[in-house]
Design a protein around this nucleic acid. Structure first.
Lengths: 195, 195
DNA sequence: TTTCAAATTAAACAAATGATTAAATCATTT
DNA sequence: AAATGATTTAATCATTTGTTTAATTTGAAA
C-alpha cells in the first residue's frame, strides 16, 4: 500500500468526478478538494482541465475495451469461450464500475472529436476471425449483428439501470443478482438467436 | 406554419442544445442565440436555466416512454403486435432523434433526483398484463428479462452507435439500414430466446 | 551545510456565466 | 388617442471558473 503520488491522487479524484458528473459539470476546484491537493497542482501536473480529462477518458475507454478486444481477436479461443468470457468479465467489471458504459458512450456521442485520436488505427474488432468462427458454429448472422446482440444483452441493463429501478421492474438490491443471472444465459441466447 | 412563439423558440433551441451537449455544457447565452431571442427572455419565460432544463427533460423522457408504455399495457394487443409495434416505433423515432436515448439515460444516471419527480407514481410497466401474455405464448422468461431483451436489441445500437462507427463495424451511411434490418428480426429473436 | 531544482502554496486575474434591473416597445382595450 | 399590461431590450451585477504568478517549502545532491 504505497501512498499515492500527487499525480495519482489527482487522476483518482478526476476519474471519480468526471465519470459521475461529466466534463462540464466537474469543476477543477472540486477535483483538487477531492484529491486533497492545492488547485494549482492540477495545472502543474496536467497543464489543463481538458488534458486531465483526456487522460481519464483514455483510461476508462481502455477499461471498457480491454475486456472484449483481445478475447474476440484470439483465434485459439472458441466462440463459446469468447461469449462466456466476455459476459463474465463485463458483468464483473460493470458491477464494480456501473457508471462506466454510460459515461463512455455519452462522452463518445457528445465529444466525438476526443475519441478520434484515441481509437485511431485501433483495430477494435477482428472481423475475419469472428466471421470464420460464426460459420464454423453454423451461425448465419453478420459480424455487426453478432457484436450488437452480444453487447446489447450484456451491457444494456447497466446503461438503462435507472429505468429498471425507477419502474420497479428490478429492485436496487436485486440488481446484481439480475445481471448475474442474465450473464449465465448469454451463450444460450446467442446460439438460439442464430439458430 | 404558424411562426413560433418566443416560448416555443426557446424550448426548441434548448432541446437541441441540451440533448447535444448536456446541461452544464450548454450556456444560457447559447440558447438565447440559437433561439434568436434576448437572454433576459429566457428567465422571463422560464425563471431559470434549471427550470427550462426540467421542461426539456420531461418532454424528451416522454417522447421515449410513450412509444412503449401504452402499447405494453394494452391487453387487447397481442404480444407479437406489441413487440413489432415497439420495434417499429422505436427505430423510427430514434432514427429521427439519435441522441435521445443516450441523453435520457445519461441524465437519468447523472441527475437522478430530477427524474424522481417526473416518474413518481407513473406505472411505467404493466407487469401483470405482460406476465399473462408471456405465459400464453409459452415463454418462461421473467418480465424484467423480457423487457431488458426487447429494449436491448432495439435501442442498444443507437446508444453504442459511436462504437460501431469508429470500429468500422458499421459505416455511417449504412447505419439506418443496419437498424432497419435488425428491427425486422426482433420478434423472431425474442421468440427464439424464450424458446 | 549549502545549493538548487522540484513540489507546493496562497493570492490574484481575466473571462465566462446565470440572473436581474430598469427602461423601452408593442399590442390590446377603453 | 390614451392608458395599461405584456413583452423585449441593453446594460449591469455578483459569482464562479480555469489558469497563472510569485513566493515558499521540501528533499536530495554536492
Amino acid at each position: 500500500m504505497e501512498p499515492l503520488t500527487t499525480e495519482q491522487k489527482i487522476i483518482k479524484a478526476a476519474s471519480k468526478l468526471f465519470t459521475q458528473k461529466g466534463y462540464a459539470a466537474t469543476k477543477t476546484r472540486e477535483i483538487a478538494e477531492e484529491a486533497g491537493i492545492n488547485l494549482a497542482l492540477l495545472n502543474y501536473y496536467f497543464g489543463s482541465k481538458e488534458r486531465l480529462y483526456k487522460e481519464v477518458v483514455k483510461n476508462k475507454l481502455w477499461m471498457l475495451l480491454e475486456v472484449m478486444i483481445p478475447v474476440l481477436s484470439d483465434e485459439t479461443v472458441s466462440l463459446k469461450e469468447k461469449v462466456e468470457t466476455i459476459a463474465e468479465n463485463y458483468t464483473q467489471l460493470l458491477l464494480e464500475h456501473e457508471e462506466l458504459p454510460i459515461f463512455i458512450l455519452n462522452e463518445w456521442t457528445v465529444n466525438e472529436d476526443l475519441f478520434v485520436d484515441i481509437t485511431r488505427d485501433a483495430r477494435l474488432f477482428a472481423k475475419p476471425v469472428i466471421e470464420k468462427q460464426l460459420k464454423e458454429n453454423g451461425m448465419e448472422v453478420s459480424v455487426p449483428d453478432f457484436i450488437a446482440n452480444l453487447l446489447s444483452l450484456i451491457m444494456f441493463s447497466f446503461v438503462a439501470k435507472p429505468l429498471f429501478i425507477s419502474s420497479g421492474l428490478v429492485e436496487e438490491e436485486e440488481f446484481a443478482d439480475f445481471v448475474m443471472r442474465r450473464k449465465e444465459k448469454i451463450w444460450e441466447w446467442i446460439t438460439k438467436i442464430n439458430q
